[in-house]
């Protein structure tokens, strides 16, 4: 029983980690708190839903489409909108992101109505057991594997490529990066595109595992916050630690206190971590 809860928590935590990787990247590099992050996850989920419903494309295969489309969308939004206010106070970009969130959510609401939908794949309920006690849903395990794969890909891009070097340089010193010839506006846009692309991937996996609706973004943004804060900014490992921590806490918390308490537990942890270790579990003390 305990082992089952542990595994459920870890599997869900992996998804939380993927949700938060993009947010953490955007926040860490450009100091933008992307309140609209959950809305982009929602868009990714709907890309998968429509590709499956209209064209019968397998949800796992649609990952490429959702990541690609959201990368382009993210690039455009940063390049032609956020870049125009990026040097105003951080608070201004925060409100701009709020505006984007309201816009996207309501556009989705007008286009697709508030109905809750589900991607019904034939293999959705497949699972296997280890021993007597632990049952592992296959789809969730595959999703978890993809989370690890995508995280590694991110790690590779940031640490081993020219683009990654530009992003890290811009993040450390905007003017310095510009001096050595980095196209800052382009780099910012690519960073936002990558972050939103990761949100798209999270959306696809979310659509495979859970029901989706245009208003699902708000709570996902809040959970991504919790994950980013618990893990701390500035390292690729942060969101993963944070995601697994939140997944486990929710899983054990709802087992011990009842599922209505899971939000209370999550947000209490958020506030406590901020007060005690504002730089996250991994980060140094302030």
């Amino acid at each position: 029983m305990l082992l089952q809860i542990l595994i459920n928590g870890l599997l869900k935590g992996g998804l939380y980690a993927l949700m938060a990787i993009g947010m953490s990247l955007i926040w860490g590099v450009m100091d933008i708190i992307n309140i609209a992050h959950g809305s982009f996850i929602m868009l990714g989920a709907f890309v998968t839903y429509w590709l499956f419903t209209l064209l019968g494309i397998d949800p796992f295969l649609s990952l490429f489409f959702s990541v690609g489309l959201l990368f382009i969308l993210g690039y455009g939004i940063q390049r032609y909108l956020i870049n125009y206010v990026i040097r105003a106070s951080a608070f201004i970009t925060l409100i701009l992101a709020f505006g984007i969130e309201i816009f996207i959510n309501n556009l989705a609401l007008v286009a697709w109505t508030a109905d809750v939908r589900k991607v019904e794949v034939a293999y959705g309920a497949a699972n296997f057991s280890i021993g007597h006690w632990v049952t592992i849903p296959t789809v969730r395990l595959v999703a978890f594997g993809l989370v690890i794969l995508i995280s590694l890909l991110f790690f590779f891009i940031l640490n081993r490529t020219h683009l990654g070097r530009s992003i890290r340089a811009t993040s450390q010193d905007l003017d310095g990066a510009r001096l050595v010839g980095v196209d800052v506006a382009h780099t910012y846009a690519l960073t936002f595109g990558l972050g939103i692309g990761a949100a798209g991937a999270a959306g696809t996996l979310w659509a495979i595992l859970f029901p989706i609706s245009p208003m699902m973004g708000g709570i996902l943004t809040l959970r991504s916050f919790v994950v980013v804060i618990i893990g701390g900014l500035g390292s690729m490992l942060g969101p993963i630690i944070g995601g697994l921590a939140l997944g486990l806490t929710e899983s054990f918390g709802s087992n011990w206190f009842g599922s209505t308490y899971s939000d209370l537990i999550g947000f209490t942890i958020l506030v406590l971590v901020l007060i005690i270790r504002p730089k996250g579990i991994l980060g140094g003390t302030d």
């Binding site: 608070f91 925060l94 209370l264 901020l274 504002p278």
Partner: peptide, 28 residues
């Protein structure tokens, strides 16, 4: 007293967290 020690984004997120935690508490 504890939360106002945080600055910028961290204060913003902390207050958001407080409001959401309070909502969850009142719901229970």
């Amino acid at each position: 007293l504890p939360v106002l020690r945080l600055r910028g984004h961290y204060f913003a997120i902390a207050t958001l967290g407080v409001a959401e935690a309070m909502k969850a508490l009142v719901q229970n």
